[in-house]
Design a protein around this nucleic acid. Structure first.
Lengths: 349, 349
DNA sequence: CCGGGTGCCGCAATCGATTGCGACAGCGGC
DNA sequence: GCCGCTGTCGCAATCGATTGCGGCACCCGG
């Protein structure tokens, strides 16, 4: 078999000048004819001739040259903690499905929740001339994001927010989700419900905890601080550790509302290690409704977040802002629903 | 609070000319001083002056302008079926962790296993001037990939290969993995083992099936065609359907070796619907070792693939090829290991 | 018959960096 | 004292597309 490297002379792809020469016009005219925005400046039959030639030549505008001149890269940056967290892939797809048809693409970077890495990754994105940012790593105190915002960098926060409410965001309606979960548990007859709270430096962590306490009070239940354990990270290990602390404290409870699914998975580990059966001894509710939760034993009841929609909506908002900078930034809350499975049941006293 | 849009005049970032003017040299000299490759052409103290000025100005070379001139985009395309398949995120991270330090980035596109979408996505990548491709969607017959290869497009296949062995690839050593899985089952005492084969238009599908039969013969077991069911897609549903066909056929077997984890998950559904207990009645082995398999009930025994390494190695190979086009392309097989969990046990006759 | 529009298109600069080529100074060798 | 070499650096073209400006026909009204 012949090597593919020897088949053809490089045969560089056709440029605008090639099209112009072939069509007998100046490159400027060809450019205007090919661009829908400026097409009206060119005689109709010249347009069709240029377009036809461009097609037969297989002309594709060079986005790099275009970007250099127009200062627009048709690119946005996506900053997430870790792509291997199953939460994010659907969000990424939502973003790309909106960006793509608009001619935009996204660069994805992972920060691993390391602020230093975050800073350098964002720097890399900016040097790549991204036009805007979608950020999923917000913490309540977040100097980097504040700085970017005051510098006028276009961005949309997803999932979590900063303490600075001025930055537009797309987040699930955490409070409503928690309320629904508590409602479900109370409806089953639970009165002593524990909460595995997420990191208190994230908006989701504090909002969900606050909503949890509020929901208890709404149901006239005791808002007992001893039933809330804080997890320093959104991980299985921390979830397991928190549940162990709760169990060892001697507190009594028949249900656990975990701040997210990973924390709930940690509970499963503890159940196994201590011979606790779920949901007979303790019910568990997660948050996020990651994929494959229905394959667990027992299948995990979880608050469902429209991940794909979160991404899609964030991308739409960012594009809106890019296209019309005067447009007033908004923040939206997406509605949630509870996916009831077999990890929750009537308490056995 | 003051609007961030009114704080500063645009204050465009410093360009090479700014650095040059400040340092009292020609832009050409500044360029050479800043580029390690050409630095030796410039007087040492001029270099240090330029470098110092560049730093104080916070100069960042504009990659778009650089790409335009050098014809290199420092960008590669990654073509996968679907990012939400948990198989891929670790691969993507492996790729990015190798690409990043080399100054490269990856564009990720999803094809949803749709050849038309694949074609348009690849076209989009090429118009974005990617220097090479990493492709995870190979089928045995794959005209698009053959065409790209003969056009001299640099690429590396991962996970799966085409029938055309000339294209470099990084794949798990499927045959060895299957052999190890069969070894494990035979060691437990199983003699009637069924196989859920993947789509026969993919290399993984056929290689794993062939390896399965070979392994049986190696153990002097009956290579019974009635114990192999083909699945037209790598999905839970198809796995479930195939197992039902096997069970309904009246064939007897005490273990199932699934072509991948999703097919194995389908088995779990069938077990539940027919009251079969695993592993007491039937043992199951998966392939890929996706995340969270240990949380299933029972935790799934699976052939572990070093996903991250697959991505990292593919990225390294691609970079090698880009840097030295004369370098002979190679294909590598990555070693596998079996993650034994609780879905496999001694058969109960 | 002339002035002022309007429509269409070309000229050339521009985006920011890279690079082949040539200029020039200084130096050593013969 | 002249030649040529080496080390440094500047000039200007270049990558491919976009766009402000101006020119040229042509048309219409007066």
């Amino acid at each position: 078999m012949s090597s593919p490297r020897t088949t053809l002379p490089p045969a560089r792809p056709p440029t605008l000048r090639d099209v112009a020469r072939e069509a007998g016009v100046h490159p400027a005219t060809a450019s205007r004819a090919l661009n829908p925005e400026t097409r009206s400046l060119v005689n109709a039959e010249t347009v069709s001739r240029v377009v036809r030639i461009a097609e037969t030549l297989g002309y594709r505008p060079n986005p790099i040259a275009r970007s250099l001149k127009t200062q627009r890269s048709a690119t946005v940056g996506l900053v997430i903690p870790d792509l291997t967290n199953p939460l994010f892939p659907p969000i990424v797809r939502g973003i790309e499905d909106v960006l793509g048809p608009a001619g935009y693409n996204a660069w994805v970077v992972n920060t691993d929740n390391d602020p230093a890495r975050e800073e350098s990754q964002v720097e890399a994105l900016r040097s790549r001339q991204v036009e805007g940012l979608i950020v999923a790593t917000a913490r309540l105190e977040h100097p980097l994001l504040d700085r970017l915002h005051t510098q006028g960098v276009r961005m949309v926060l997803i999932n979590r927010r900063t303490g600075n409410g001025a930055i537009p965001s797309v987040t699930p309606d955490d409070a409503a989700g928690i309320a629904e979960a508590v409602e479900h548990l109370v409806g089953l007859g639970h009165t002593r419900i524990a909460h595995l709270a997420g990191p208190q430096n994230t908006s989701t962590g504090v909002v969900r905890e606050r909503a949890f306490r509020q929901a208890l009070r709404d149901h006239r239940l005791d808002d007992d601080p001893a039933l809330v354990a804080e997890c320093p990270a959104w991980s299985e290990d921390e979830g397991a550790a928190a549940l162990r602390r709760l169990l060892d404290s001697g507190a009594t409870f028949t249900a656990v509302l975990a701040g997210n699914d990973l924390l709930a998975l940690g509970c499963y580990d503890v159940f196994r290690e201590r011979g606790i059966t779920c949901p007979d001894d303790i019910s568990v509710v997660g948050f996020n409704d990651m994929p494959y939760l229905d394959k667990l034993q027992p299948p995990l009841t979880s608050v469902h977040i429209p991940h794909y929609e979160v991404g899609a909506e964030a991308a739409r908002m960012l594009l809106d802002g890019l296209r019309d900078p005067s447009r007033h930034a908004r923040s939206v809350l997406l509605p949630l629903s509870l996916s009831v499975r077999a990890s929750t049941a009537v308490p056995h006293p």
